[in-house]
Design a protein around this nucleic acid. Sequence first.
DNA 1: TTACGAATGTGATCTACATCACGTAACCAA
DNA 2: TTGGTTACGTGATGTAGATCACATTCGTAA
Lengths: 192, 192
Amino acid sequence: MEAKTILKEHVSKIAALSDTEFDYFFSHFKPETFKKGQTIITEGQDVDKEYFVLSGCLKTFFVNDEVKMYILQFAMPTWWASDYAALYNKTKATISVDCVSDVELLSLSNNDREKICRELHQAEHFFRWRTNKGYVATQKRLLSFMNNDTKTRYEELLALYPALYNIVPKHLIAAYLGVSRETLSRLYNASK
Amino acid sequence: MEAKTILKEHVSKIAALSDTEFDYFFSHFKPETFKKGQTIITEGQDVDKEYFVLSGCLKTFFVNDEVKMYILQFAMPTWWASDYAALYNKTKATISVDCVSDVELLSLSNNDREKICRELHQAEHFFRWRTNKGYVATQKRLLSFMNNDTKTRYEELLALYPALYNIVPKHLIAAYLGVSRETLSRLYNASK
DNA sequence: TTACGAATGTGATCTACATCACGTAACCAA
DNA sequence: TTGGTTACGTGATGTAGATCACATTCGTAA
């Protein structure tokens, strides 16, 4: 399916934009493709874009001083990804984004997002909705982190991303769950 | 300070509303006061409002099957609180909100928020900004949960809410950190 | 096809924190 | 003031998961 159609279907669920308005909205997005393993946002550098996933899978992650990686999100088609803290506050990235598989994206600069939000009330409405959805999802995940043990969180992850298990290496799943790869391996093999 | 002034100062940092527009915006808010210990949102019930804190302190929290409580947020003056998942999806509350101290609030119904967002582009802009701020803060907290040990998170909490330590009982601080009150007690007394 | 690095499995140990159990101190309400 | 509830401190013990160490398998590039 064409990039424009995918984005239109996604946005029109929430925002009532005329065809002309959507064309204008869409004109601010730029198609980009990356290969598996390529880095899109690097920790410590400037961030000026966010990304809408058309195909493939991104991961957004944080690496601490001991070089341990924690995955905040796997971004699948029609999901959005960036380091939003850095993007909005114009600070250096603390979060990185790279490609779990080959990907097709649409990129949108921070300036252009703010511009179309000013110019089109419905665009502002759409982005309010989108951020709200992310907020609620993150809060739910935080709660799950506090309340559930690793096994429960593992099952939740598979429910949330059923395709994921076959797509990504297990150490990435461990990094999403916040446990060591050894623990995940034992967990997985014990329940067979 | 008057409720209207407090909200106006808060909103005008982000949204350019004329005095007339702000009066209209404000007319959808309803002042409410509660005593320490009173419950504002109860798990399992309907949610139709969100709350802006004028004075005092709220907590939003989740209680699991084993009656263990986890605090998602302490809401201080000019902060907002609700069960946003329930509010937006019109589902029953899974999160409760109650009063850590006597509080003065402004309440806003879900319908009225959506109404003023439709009617005033700048209101929509404000709520997009507000939700984004919450999203970024929650993501940061999630990361801290994955990456930092209890002691570090304890220090982060005191940096985020310097006043809190003297205001709330320690078992609530433990519930925010996601550790037992015994562990927090030992942690605190060891570092003296 | 070979070969080398990456991904995975599995045992042995270590540790932060939970849980249980109990005692003391603080805070109200009658 | 007294009795009862809630907050807080601290020891003893249990456990999930981290860490280290090594073996095995897989994937990809030469």
